[in-house]
Every structure is written in structure tokens, then in C-alpha cells.
Amino acid sequence: MSKEFTILYFASARDAVNISSEIISFPSTSSSLSLQDLTNLLKNRHENLGKVLENSMFAINMQYVDKDDESIMVKPGDEVAIIPPVSGG
């Protein structure tokens, strides 16, 4: 099993990182990540992403996840979507 997960960036998150998706390897010591760890990892990878992340919704495998739920873990093969609100119209 691959020790990787995929991140999908939408709307202003994609604009902030200039890519629509990327595959990330788990840190060597673990094969799962809490959402808080994920947030920190993404902030370190992309300096412009911090503010956008705070107001974005996260979804794992196309299902909403509560960012405050510490029991939720990202596992190998997961697809995590970063979905900021779009306000325009």
C-alpha cells in the first residue's frame, strides 16, 4: 500500500498554491495524520495558503469532515479536498 495521500485544491486555495492537486508522502514515522497535523504540513509547504486554510472546508474522499474532530485521520490513499467558500456571483 502506498504511503501517500492526494490533496485537491479548489478556487482560492488553488490560486494560492498554483496547482490543482498534489500527491504527498506521509512523514516517515507515521502512516496517518490528524487534520491539525495536515493543516500545519500544508502551511509549511505553501506560504500563501495559511489564511485560506483557516476558512476552508475539508473533505476526505468527497465527504465533509469536521476540522475540530481530533479523531479524524488522513490515511494512505485518501483524497483530501480543500474547499474555500466562493462568495462572488
Binding site: A11, D15, K51, E54, N55, I83, P84, P85
Partner: peptide, 29 residues
């Protein structure tokens, strides 16, 4: 909602579903 090349669509506050604040509790800066 729509901006640039992106759009979002949802029905809120209907049949026990969430409201906009349940999903986006903090307004974007």
C-alpha cells in the same frame, strides 16, 4: 456562487440539512 472559473452550489436549511454557518462558520478575511 461563482468567481473566475469556479462555482459552488448547495441547498441549505432544508430537510434537516446544514445551514451555511454549519459548513462555513468563519467568514473569510
Amino acid at each position: 456562487s461563482a468567481l473566475r472559473m469556479d462555482g459552488q452550489l448547495a441547498v441549505y436549511n432544508y430537510r434537516g440539512g446544514p445551514c451555511y454557518r454549519c459548513i462555513f462558520s468563519k467568514p473569510p478575511p
